[in-house]
């Protein structure tokens, strides 16, 4: 079994490590006139990362051969949370703190607990957004973006 979720993560890590090492090699020679250059340390780190990723991939392939991995039920809530955070950051300045944060908190509450009692959840979202605003802006003097003004 060359592909399972853990192996995919390791392959990605290996690819990133290789990319990092290639970028480090492009920085120039690691040693010039007996002194270390800015390329030396990244090369060392990149090489070590590739070594560890390689060891882990071999270990996982052996494990997968000896005992096929048990497939656990897939959930995607965490991916939706990532999408929600991403959209929140994108909307944070254009929509202002209140609108973007209210929608974000509401979306997360719904993601964590389902679509029942939406009105109650909307009220809770508004209260949470308001209290957080008071904490950041009034108590700690942080300037938060607004839609108008």
């Amino acid at each position: 079994m060359l592909m399972n979720r853990q192996l995919v993560f390791l392959y990605v890590t290996l690819a990133v490590s290789v990319g990092y090492l290639v970028s480090a090699l492009r920085l120039g020679a690691p040693v010039v006139d007996g002194g270390l250059t800015p390329a030396f340390f990244p090369m060392l780190v990149g090489g070590t990362a590739i070594l560890f990723a390689g060891v882990l991939i071999v270990q996982k392939l052996r494990e997968a051969r000896d005992a096929p991995p048990v497939e656990t039920p897939r959930t995607f809530t965490h991916l939706w949370v990532v999408v929600a955070v991403f959209l929140y950051v994108v909307a944070f300045k254009p929509l202002g703190y209140f609108l973007s944060s209210g929608l974000f908190v509401f979306a997360l509450i719904v993601l964590f607990s389902g679509r029942e009692k939406l009105l109650v959840k909307a009220v809770i979202s508004a209260v949470v957004t308001g209290v957080a605003y008071l904490m950041f802006q009034q108590l700690f003097g942080v300037r938060l973006p607004t839609l108008w003004g």
């Binding site: 949370v81 997360l108 509450i109 607990s113 949470v128 957080a132």
Partner: peptide, 20 residues
Amino acid sequence: MRKDVLYAVIALLAVVGSYV
């Protein structure tokens, strides 16, 4: 305590906190 509200609050504080 309601976990949905708790995690929403944590996420809000975390994301806005990194803006500060």
